[in-house]
Amino acid sequence: MFEAKLQQGVIFKKIVDAIKDLVKSVNIDASTSGLSMQAMDSAHVALVSLKLNENGFKDYRCDRPITLGLSIENLSKILKCAGNDDTITLQTDEEEPSSLKFFFENQQASKISEFSLNLMSLDSESLGIPDTDYSSVIQMSSAEFSRICKELSSISETVEIETSKESVKFSVQGDIGAGSITVKNNQSDKDVDRVDLQIDQPVKLTFALRYLNMFNKAVSLSSTVSLNMSEENPLMVEYKIDDLGSLRFYLAPKISD
């Protein structure tokens, strides 16, 4: 028996919206500790990793670990039927489920929707992601980071991110010209302006902006985003989801030949 009830169902809708351009089908692994999901894009350049802790759910029960293979496109169609204020419950009684039940309830419990989504059997191609002690970590407004990526992607497909003790510089070079945006440490009490840099070692890494723009669809999940980098390592972009868990994106760097 597996049942997970999320009080703020809108969070689940936002998570699916944030990943639907990146991955087509995912395995959600349910266990006693909560839900986890890891999936790569078709080019194996980017990876999304979701962890939702059981104690972030209104009700959570998972008698034994199960894997739920879902088509993101079909999941989106079902979630469209859930209101932003609804609770969302996922449920199945089977051990090897062939479908997953969804219940959407409005606040007054006066409207209850029930859907059953057919499950897929997907081969799990998961990667072992080592716990990395990143040498450069940037905490900043997710809206601001999203804006920087959008603006710079009109000049080039590729952005170079260079960190130093007191600032992070986003540089682009394209056919029309070049540009850079430098953001300094800023302990402002206004969320949108605050920038925390923890730079043990400066890094200079290059990434494809089209993936960063896809990751930034998660901006509605958290007002802050963290960029975690070490030389010769994929970038890890993390959106923490209050009281529930986190949505992480990994992006392999580009190297100049």
């Binding site: 194996h44 072992g128 590729t158 494809a208 392999a252 580009k254 190297i255």
Partner: peptide, 14 residues
């Protein structure tokens, strides 16, 4: 020219 790496160059398949 920048060459896009893939994640398998950094993370092991498990």
């Amino acid at each position: 020219r920048d060459i896009q790496k893939d994640l398998q160059s950094f993370f092991q398949n498990i």
